[in-house]
């Protein structure tokens, strides 16, 4: 691995797309402003010059973008549309929920939808109203859909490559606040990180913290600050989730905290708590805590710091759980 491939998440997205476009003529990248503009975050910068037949600016219509992908996929393409912000995917939700996710099951497997829908999501970048949602739990509630959230540049490349090659539809959620946060060496050339496998970012004995996307950094910082001996699990794939890694860790530590920025009620933390209770109830020494956003519409940026979980909230939860 050379320093030459030191990338931030935004560049890792670009590189994965570039390599998959080159590898497979059936990969089609399209969406609002993905062409000459290179995407509003520049994730697709330069791709239209290098792959003019495979990269397309689209009319402004999210339902159309996702619906078109279903048709492309049915005829053998691998569509990789970009939805400009996750909050605008709601405009195409029916196509995702009613068709993309169940084309395989409705046709008893004769047709499928190997589409990867990329989109920036989450708060923390002082964006406009309607730009900061974290709807992973909603997507995870759709059977037949995979939901992936990377938190590092290397994972971004490996997981996006895996998503594009996956035979089923994948919602690929890119945390905006991490796009340019830091860089790391990313493997050059072919690099696939399998979907459905969590990553253990730190290992310890007394506590398990589970997080993903924009919250992983704060979770690691909180562990650092409290000096607790903890496993920190980056879930990476929200659905189907790697429950074995979670359960093994909780059985070892006996304590668990889930951190996410989405609202608490019916958030992914609730599902994790349920599964931990199913599989590790007799090992638990404290209630499983949730550190999450509140059950309010994600506020505009003047109040987003108060809304988003941060290190101090996680530290408080750690102290409470460990001291239980």
């Amino acid at each position: 691995m050379s320093d030459a491939n030191q990338l931030r998440i935004i560049e890792a997205v670009s590189q994965a797309l570039d390599e998959e476009l080159a590898r497979d003529d059936d990969v089609i990248v399209y969406g609002e402003d993905v062409g000459i503009d290179g995407g509003v975050f520049r994730a697709t910068q330069g791709l239209i010059e290098d792959h003019p037949e495979q990269v397309h600016d689209s009319p402004l219509a999210e339902a159309g973008i996702i619906g078109l992908g279903i048709g492309l996929a049915a005829t053998g393409f691998r569509p990789v549309p970009e939805i400009q912000f996750q909050s605008f995917l709601y405009q195409g939700f029916h196509q995702l929920q009613q068709h993309a996710s169940r084309l395989r099951s409705r046709t008893r497997g004769t047709l499928s939808c190997p589409m990867t829908i990329r989109m920036p999501f989450g708060g923390g970048i002082r964006a406009l109203e309607h730009h900061s949602d974290s709807y992973e739990a909603g997507f995870a509630h759709i059977p037949g859909l995979k939901v992936v959230v990377p938190s590092t540049p290397a994972d971004t490349k490996g997981l996006l490559t895996a998503a594009i090659r996956d035979p089923d539809p994948v919602v690929f959620m890119e945390p905006t606040r991490l796009y340019r946060a830091s860089s790391e060496p990313v493997p050059e050339g072919e690099y696939v990180e399998p979907l459905g496998a969590a990553a253990v970012r730190r290992t310890g004995e007394d506590l398990t913290l589970i997080s993903w996307g924009g919250m992983v950094r704060d979770t690691l910082d909180a562990v650092e600050e409290t000096e607790v001996s903890a496993d920190v699990i980056d879930l990476r794939t929200i659905s189907p989730m790697d429950i074995d890694t979670v359960v093994a860790s909780v059985r070892k530590t006996g304590r668990c905290i889930v951190v996410h920025e989405a609202p608490r009620t019916a958030g992914m933390a609730a599902e994790l708590v349920a599964q931990v209770t199913d599989e590790a109830f007799l090992y638990l020494e404290a209630p499983v805590e949730r550190v999450t956003g509140y059950d309010v519409p994600v506020p505009m940026f003047a109040r987003e710091e108060a809304y988003l979980p941060d290190t101090s909230r996680i530290v408080t939860a750690i102290e409470r759980t460990v001291g239980f």
């Binding site: 609002e32 402003d33 062409g35 000459i36 503009d37 509003v40 600016d57 689209s58 009319p59 402004l60």
Partner: peptide, 10 residues
Amino acid sequence: AISTPRRVQT
């Protein structure tokens, strides 16, 4: 529409 000119829109 951001970068997309009217003639590409429709």
